[in-house]
Write a protein that binds this DNA or RNA. Structure first.
Lengths: 230, 230, 230, 230
DNA sequence: CATGAATGAGAGTTCATTCAT
DNA sequence: GATGAATGAACTCTCATTCAT
């Protein structure tokens, strides 16, 4: 029985999307396990349950698999930022909330994926370009905007927000690398990091007693934190 | 005339060391320029002015070149930390000093080398193990020790020093990656980072006015800084 | 309403013929443009506006496309010979007429097609067999017959007509190749060739002004030849 | 024992030349047997008794093997032209001499080689360029020069020498193709072609009776020729 | 020890052909 | 019959590594 062309196309589009997903899933898995260079197209194909050549019906070449993985990551990454639109928080609460959310995302699988991606991003210019364009830059842009909104009036004076954000993101990225490097401290205390990072950034490394910020802080930071827990 | 065996051996040892250096210099250069995987042994050999096979008299395989580079890095890295033994500073001054020193080390060449090393560290378990063992762990150990010494009595209470150090190192590592990714903010304001990082960590993200550090800062930070410059 | 089986078959036959034509047209075009080996079935299919697989309903494999092209060529080639049946000419006039006709056929498209066909004929035994069987041999047979008729009585004595025809055809074939090789002389003076060839063949290479070679021929050609033998 | 650098280099150069020869011999053989496209690098390597990779130490890629074969042909082709410098002949004698020489060169092996080369020349632009540059063009240039010298004063009037040469070369090339196509006439009467071609070109297709050469020729050449015919 | 030609396993990629829909 | 995604054999080429000189 003939299917209407439209339905047919829609169906085909879905099938194509599924195949891509199937292949990218497989690629993600084997890349995460063995690294990009150590993995052959044949292994990806086998993991995906397709023939070698089939992969080339969906991706131009091996490197395009990485880009494809990146693009998917982009889609899943975009949302946390959206989620973070939560209103009614002060900067500290928002910050803590956001960090918790981000760090919680990194299960073993995701971690290994980042491991591969970052490794290649460092060394593959095209991938780096896409990574910066699709993920880094938009994230910074959004973050700068939100930050500006959340900084209490009359505070932002001395600090270069853009650069502050780089430092924060940098510490995030760096912690990711340390975890990948299996640093025992970071591994075992991963879940403590959001609080610690927040405390450090808002109270400083050497909080005085009487803490200067204690007075200006939102009255119930701990309570606020508890509320936001996803 | 024959040379005494001992002298001969000493001579030989030196020759061997020189050859290794020569090869590692070449490897560092070409790896930094083109990345590890894109570089062939032949290119390393040509850059070193030796034959392909000669490299295998000094290194077991291509991957051992990376390990060799790492080992040398280790030697040169250990010293800045030692240098930083500068006394008579409070924590903040020391911190600023140390950061300036470290960031200043990253000229283009070194940066590219780290780019390659980090890329492979993420993906090559043996290299990672060595990197952690030789560089990361000792650095943290030393840092923890110095930190403990420098933290004023009665201050370290609530903070997990080990984890704080990870965050600091992490932000350092992460900024490195952002710079490698050619983030324009990080690239252009690289030299502002030590001050900003110090300010953030000691004064917090939302410093009160009147700024607390104005009062607590060491009287002559700039002078102190200048003195320490190697 | 059902169609009578016969009509149906006739219709079907026509459809099949049209499809074959459509595919061969496309194949001719793309082969001529890119060469046989550089062209993929997919490209032929796209040019024909059908799916890859459809081609295999009409041709056993890629090589059969060449055979198909050859067969069609055969049909169109047969006719010029028929055309040339023009009567009332002497041999020289007929010859000139025929050459003009043949050479005029080689527009750019046809030329490129021959380029591909000859290239493959040289190397593909089956194609060669068919080319010889269908085109070369019949052409020679017909030509020999017509030649015999046209040669004035008492003239054909010393010459091996079959071989003479090979030489004539050969020069034709060779000029084709030189043109394909973009020899500038042949390219620019293509239209002068029929006259020149006719003159050469009928008047000889060193025509006398009042005529024949009889008087001017070198007195001892054979002797000269014998001496020079390397 | 150490060899002087100079000797060493000379030796090396010879070794390299030998390897190239060895590989080109193998390539010539297998290409001639199976055609260029049907032959894999592995087969060439096996025929040459070396490993696959070794071929790439001497030739950039598969196509370079064809160019290499062409270059060698060039060297061997150049000499016949030089040989033909024989003096003291008139045009007809020279012509016959040259044709005999050229046609005699085509043993089975050489023929098959031309088969492959011509096939690719038709379709591979780079090869064609080199073929024209190295062989066709110089040959025509030389031939035009010699022809001009040999044409008796006051004769060259009506004929376009360049074009005449194309026709002659063309007939040669075309006869080659017909022989490759296993035309029985050309195959069996290959050795008669020089005489016939010469006769045709100098006496014309329809020699008048009384045949001029009949008178001046050695008494029974034609008769002899006829007898030899299969 | 130095050399660098030889090696050959193995990689990414292509594409003629098949066949379920 | 038409489709075109799937197939996987086969190809060219690379390059880390070896080893005779």
């Amino acid at each position: 029985m003939l299917i209407m062309t439209e339905e047919r196309n829609a169906f085909q589009t879905q099938v194509v999307a599924l195949r891509r997903t199937q292949i990218l899933d497989a690629a993600t898995k084997v890349f995460a396990e063995q690294g990009y260079h150590r993995t052959t197209i044949r292994e990806v194909a086998k993991a995906a349950g397709v023939a070698d050549g089939t992969i080339y019906n969906y991706f131009e070449n091996k490197s395009a698999l990485l880009l494809g993985i990146l693009d998917r990551l982009n889609e899943t990454e975009a949302r946390p930022a959206a989620l973070a639109q939560a209103t009614g928080m002060d900067l500290r609460a928002f910050f803590l909330h956001y960090l918790r959310h981000r760090l919680a995302l990194f299960d073993q699988q995701t971690l290994e994926l980042y491991q591969v991606l970052l490794s290649e991003v460092l060394v593959n210019p095209e991938l780096r370009r896409r990574y910066v364009e699709q993920i880094v830059a938009p994230t910074f842009a959004l973050a700068e905007q939100r930050f500006s909104q959340l900084i209490p009036q009359g505070k932002q004076g001395p600090l270069d927000i853009a650069l502050v954000l780089r430092i924060i993101s940098g510490s995030f990225l760096g912690l990711l690398m340390l975890r990948v490097m299996e640093d025992p401290e970071v591994q075992t205390k991963w879940d403590d990091l959001p609080e610690l990072l927040t405390t450090m950034l808002f109270d400083g490394l050497l909080p005085d007693s009487p803490l200067p910020k204690a007075a200006t802080d939102s009255p119930l930071p701990k309570a606020a934190e508890q509320k936001e827990k996803d």
